[in-house]
């Protein structure tokens, strides 16, 4: 990197403010070793998985049941541990 200009234009009149955005640490789905899979037959729609999900990727709707955004799910397994009916199982990632 020596000899190369790191700052192209001066930030004299701009304040370096961060803006809210998805995926600050990239697609965190790549961190996953186990994948949560929902059995919608067993689900009782109690919202516990959505309440406790640390990445906020689970959405439980009264009509359709839970859906998981696998782009960002880190596969921690908290949802399968708190599920009272055992509807979420952790399946090893291929």
């Amino acid at each position: 990197m020596a000899g190369q200009d790191l700052i192209i234009e001066p930030i004299k009149y701009r304040v370096p403010l961060s803006r809210p955005e998805k995926g600050v640490a990239g697609k965190t789905g790549f961190w996953r070793t186990e994948k949560p899979v929902v059995d919608k037959e067993k689900c009782v729609k109690c919202w516990l998985c959505e309440i406790y999900c640390p990445v906020d990727v689970i959405r439980v709707e009264p009509e359709t049941g839970p859906t998981i955004d696998y782009d960002y799910c880190k596969g921690c397994g908290v949802c399968s541990n708190v599920c009272p009916s055992g509807a979420i199982t952790m399946v090893p990632e291929e």
Binding site: P20, E21, K22, G23, V24, A25, G26, K27, T28, W31, C46, W47, L48, E50, I51, P54, V55, D56, V57, R59, V60, D69, D71, Y72, K74, G75, C76, G77, V78, V82, P84
Partner: peptide, 29 residues
């Protein structure tokens, strides 16, 4: 299990954005 009251999950959505730099299973988010 604590019995959840429905308003909480809808109100907690979309403020903490997915893809943060926390370890898996982190209690902070």
């Amino acid at each position: 299990q604590t019995r959840p009251k429905p308003p909480l999950p809808y109100r907690m959505r979309d403020i903490v954005l997915p893809g943060d730099a926390a370890c898996p299973g982190c209690p902070i988010p």
